[in-house]
Design a protein around this nucleic acid. Structure first.
Lengths: 332, 332
DNA sequence: TTGAAAGCGCTACCAA
DNA sequence: TTGGTAGCGCTTTCAA
């Protein structure tokens, strides 16, 4: 196939017409006669001509590319949110660049720096943990002053003026806790392998609120992914527990594992409510009651809002809350 | 902050020097005196100057961007492979564009078309199922004739001349089957929610080979994610089963679920070997013996080979095989 | 040591 | 209906 990056200039010289004629013809301009248009389009097709996106980008100042900057993709929440984003974006003329920050401030800043100057038209970001901690948000401010559209989802920074999509985590978990209380659980503990993250702390707050309102004693068990089983074991050995709220996948699975080891029946002896993908929850025995964050919907919403902003169909800086819901199953 | 996309021209006019002087100074050219260099660099820093990547790309014909084109990211194999790729790439001057094909030929072709003309320097791809079926590989051929570097991993096309990273799935599963046979299992069935995929068929072949060599009868149960539990139930109700090889996460979890429902103990009554992420396997009760595809390593390898190719350090078209290994746990 | 100018591939304005 | 030319932001040769 006669290929290898043919450009307007070459097409022009083949047909003995000017570059601008070629350009106009391929853009179906009314200025060009149908006859030449046809010749040109045919030749272009023959040579499989594709306009050079980079040149287009330089010219127009827009690239029809958006960046999705998220901490990870191992996490089913972000994987599914990304899927939602992609579903929306891929139906448009836009493409997606995905950047993984691994919760690192430096990586996040690098990505914004690299992409802000000409490469993308806008950003969808879930702010990394380290950035939240350091409270240095100048890369976001710079993006805004560079007139990039910016949408934050899940992990948002209140003080940055941009569009935001969040979930009502705090409320959801506090309601879940109240549910357990109503069904007469007395020793409801919280188990978390993510209390190093803000999300974890937020959820813990919701738990504490509900527990304290009921006059009960909050018990918060935290560890990292590797230690979580041990931490729970140690606690259960020495304390009464009749319900666990598990803040993440590891904590959820750990609850089941330890319950088995201690011969505790779920939900009779111990109820469990956890965060696990909706796809996985039914496989647990008994099926796990989960708090569903609707990650796919959040992704779709974030993408839709960004697109509207890019096409100037919406005023900037909306805030949308996607309700988390309790998916009641057999474990509680 | 005085920002908003300052460029060489503006810097030049501020200092009353020429654009080329600015350019050279910022690139630390020896042609420029230290004095002016200093003035220029300082001004650039003050204005937070960042070179426009798009302009650079147009000029140089390279963008220092690579595309990763994979079917999905929900799947833990690809999620982790992507993580491996990112780990390598993010240490270099290159950035990554991630495209999700959802196993669609059209999406894959679109992505290649969009990115081939100037946007990326190379591709890492796991070929979509539909593409494998349709056997139309011209988008790969075009990329090659456009002089893009191309690395395929996991899902590769033999007839396309490019670098390839694969795993020895066939051998791994056939060895796993032999293991079961040696430990005296007689009714070893295969359970798959992915036999619509080539990977699934490949694994099935490995199973059949081992079973038939042992003079046993192969039993292949397939379904999709939603039907997999029912299919297994129906079979177990009416047939003896003392071992299951589960080809994917859903099939693996389904095996546990059904075993429980029928009061079959794992591994005594029924052994299970499955494909589940190494992170998840220990949470199952009993812990699941898995076939580990080393997705992270595959990703890293693919990325490393691509980089070498981009920097012309390696001859093209190597083929690397990353051995799958059996992670023996309690379920078999 | 500095600057002018061409050119990467494309579009759009203005002439012809 | 067509073509010449400028310019997007940058690098690089060649002159000054």
């Amino acid at each position: 196939m006669a290929r290898s990056k043919i450009n307007l200039k070459e097409l022009a010289s083949i047909l003995g017409v000017s570059i601008s004629t070629i350009s106009k013809a391929l853009n179906d301009s009314h200025e060009i006669s149908d006859a030449t248009k046809k010749r040109i389009v045919e030749l272009a097709k023959l040579h499989n001509y594709r306009p050079n996106k980079i040149a287009l980008g330089l010219k127009s100042g827009r690239t029809n590319t958006i960046a999705v900057v998220i901490p990870s993709v191992q996490n089913s929440f972000f994987a599914r949110a990304l899927y939602g984003i992609e579903s929306v974006i891929s139906q448009t003329k836009y493409s997606t660049i995905v950047c993984l920050t691994k919760e690192s401030y430096d990586k996040e800043v690098d990505n914004f720096d690299m992409l802000s100057n000409g490469v993308v038209d806008g950003f969808i970001v879930a702010v990394s943990e380290e950035t939240q901690m350091l409270k240095d948000f100048s890369h976001f401010e710079n993006a805004i002053s560079d007139e990039k559209s910016l949408v934050m989802f899940d992990r948002v920074i209140d003080s940055i003026p941009c569009t935001k999509v969040t979930t009502n985590d705090y409320t959801a978990i506090s309601e879940a806790t109240q549910n357990l209380i109503k069904s007469n659980r007395k020793n409801i503990i919280l188990l978390s392998a993510i209390n190093n993250l803000n999300v974890g702390k937020q959820r813990t707050k919701g738990y504490r609120k509900a527990i304290q309102e009921a006059g009960l004693e909050p018990v918060v068990l935290e560890s990292d992914r590797n230690g979580i089983v041990e931490v729970l074991k140690n606690h259960i050995e020495n304390n009464p527990v009749d319900a666990v709220i598990a803040l993440d996948t590891d904590a959820s699975f750990a609850s089941y594992k330890v319950a088995r080891q201690f011969g505790k029946k779920i939900p009779e002896d111990m109820a469990v409510i956890g965060y696990v993908s909706e796809r996985m929850a039914p496989y647990l025995a008994p099926e796990l009651t989960t708090i569903n964050q609707h990650s796919y919907t959040m992704g779709k919403t974030a993408a839709t809002l960004l697109l509207e902003q890019l096409e100037n169909k919406s005023n900037k800086n909306q805030s949308v809350v996607i309700d988390s819901t309790l998916s009641q199953r057999a474990s509680s």
